[in-house]
């Protein structure tokens, strides 16, 4: 007997198929409104992060302009990575009038669950040109391993 998915049943047998079709249509519409090409996720906690995975490492990137390395704290506990810090701006005492103030100052703290186990002793973080790059080596047990086939 061939298996038929519930949503793939003919319309007269499945009243939900029409709803499914509408839902897919709405998804496509909202994706096309978000932007050209790839839609990104809207971060709700500062700073927004980009994460990449390579064969044996996780690379995290964050834009932290104006943050001094001394004001930034990164900690890793189990598979939870925490970024904490503050952005301060020394205000010019002489400045008599502000015309625009768009750059926010303040504290931030973000905790992130990592998707894989990482080697706790082997993490590297650099902050250059306002971009933070954290490189985490994957733990040995989750690294891909090649299995040699022996012939007897």
């Amino acid at each position: 007997m061939a298996l038929i998915r519930f949503t793939e049943q003919p319309a007269f047998r499945n009243p939900w198929a029409e709803f499914e079709r509408i839902r897919q249509g709405l998804d496509e519409l909202s994706n096309s409104l978000i932007g050209q090409g790839r839609a990104h996720i809207h971060a709700t906690v500062y700073p927004p992060l980009n994460m990449y995975e390579t064969k044996d490492a996780l690379i995290l990137k964050a834009e932290l302009p104006g943050v001094h390395p001394d004001d930034l704290e990164i900690s890793l506990e189990g598979d939870t990575l925490t970024l904490q810090g503050k952005r301060l701006r020394k205000l010019d005492d002489k400045a008599t009038s502000y015309h625009r103030r768009e750059i926010a100052v303040g504290n931030f703290s973000r905790a992130l669950a990592l998707p894989t186990k990482v080697d706790l002793d082997n993490m590297k973080a650099t902050l250059a040109d306002g971009i933070l790059t954290i490189t985490l080596q994957k733990a040995d047990e989750v690294k891909p391993r090649q299995i040699k086939i022996s012939t007897d």
């Binding site: 302009p65 008599t96 502000y98 625009r100 926010a104 306002g130």
Partner: peptide
Amino acid sequence: PAVDIFEDEDKVTVVAEMPGVK
């Protein structure tokens, strides 16, 4: 880029946030 613009007696200063720019 987000900017701060302030002015004093001798100059106008523009500060812009441009992460990743060398």
